[in-house]
């Protein structure tokens, strides 16, 4: 008698599960899923605003994709990637160094709490505001602080136009990316290093390994899955780069569209040059790129629980 009763009870409780997940799924369906489907649909239609009137929507098949892919999109993917990598390389190097110092048993650095607070600070600040601040700091108008310092030091004789050159503009954007994210990466890598068995470091020390050897032979191999995770998630964040280059260049990607990112290009089709067909096609391509990268993250995450298996046998670890 007791068994059926309790089973009936558990069935009646389980229905509550739907009650609790309902708000999430209703809101997601309305505000994300329907828009996503609508975006996909738009990518197959000719639909744009020009000369004060809307043309379309007319079904055109894959024409928008052909147009987008034969246009400048690849160049903008290139810009995005270049700016991302200029920021990412120093970010991973500095973060690895800081993370290993903060967790070093022998160094015993003081005031690490203070340093962690300082290096993470830029991450919480509004990207639009940091960008506007950097624009003002480097600007040639009203002689910005950097130009002022350089002029006073005699390094230059007239204000340097940082935002008129591709290299300096890209470096400034990448620099802001670096500044905003190296603290975050440091803390993530610290968590990874602290997860490594301390006895490994102790025995390495007894065996007379120097810090460089310990770092390359113990730390790096053991946190490799997390390093890859950091790399791929940073890349996913990188392809979404918008706020900083948009504010720095006033949405123009100046000079000569060399700092135009993919999302800035998408934003142009959504705002100034309204073309919903092209915007749809760019969105779908962006979606595919993000999906491929995300699958990579899922793959890495799944293997994270079995790092030993992975070290022994790279492929087929899941079969074991």
């Amino acid at each position: 008698m007791a068994a059926p009763l309790s089973r009936r009870k558990s069935i009646s409780y389980s229905k509550w599960g739907y009650f609790f997940i309902a708000p999430f799924f209703i809101i997601y369906a309305i505000f994300s899923l329907i828009p996503l489907i609508d975006t996909f649909k738009n990518s197959f239609f000719e639909y744009y605003y020009s000369q004060l009137k809307w043309t379309g929507p007319n079904f055109v098949g894959f024409d928008n994709y052909k147009m987008v892919l034969s246009g400048d999109l690849m160049k903008y993917f290139g810009n995005t990637f270049i700016i991302w990598i200029i920021g990412f390389i120093p970010q991973i190097v500095v973060s690895l160094a800081l993370a290993s110092w903060f967790t070093d048993l022998r160094l015993k650095l003081k005031a690490t709490g203070f340093f962690k607070v300082v290096i993470y600070l830029p991450n919480v600040i509004m990207a639009a505001a940091i960008s506007m601040l950097f624009y003002s700091i480097f600007s040639e108008y009203a002689i910005g602080p950097i130009n002022s310092i350089l002029l006073n030091a005699g390094a230059i004789t007239e204000p340097y136009k940082f935002f008129s050159y591709t290299t300096s503009t890209r470096l400034i954007i990448a620099g802001i990316n670096f500044l905003m994210w190296y603290g975050n990466t440091t803390i993530m890598l610290m968590a990874a290093i602290m997860g490594v068995d301390t006895s490994l470091y102790e025995s390495a020390q007894i065996d007379g390994a120097n810090p460089t050897q310990t770092f390359w032979k113990i730390t790096i191999p053991l946190i490799r899955p997390i390093l890859l995770y950091v790399l791929v998630t940073s890349l996913i964040g990188g392809i979404q780069m918008f706020d900083i280059p948009s504010v720095i260049t006033n949405a123009k990607g100046a000079p000569n569209r060399t700092t135009m990112t993919v999302v800035m290009y998408l934003n142009n089709y959504l705002t100034t040059g309204k073309n919903y067909g092209m915007a749809g096609a760019v969105s779908v391509i962006l979606f595919i790129v993000a999906a491929v990268l995300s699958l990579l993250v899922f793959y890495l995450m799944r293997d994270k629980d079995a790092p030993k298996k992975k070290l022994k046998k790279k492929k087929g670890a899941n079969l074991l």
Partner: peptide, 17 residues
């Protein structure tokens, strides 16, 4: 799965909606 979908990819549909 949806955790990794960037909000920008559905921006067009969102603005329409």
């Amino acid at each position: 799965v949806i955790m990794m979908v960037p909000s920008q990819v559905s921006a067009l549909g969102f603005v329409n909606l």
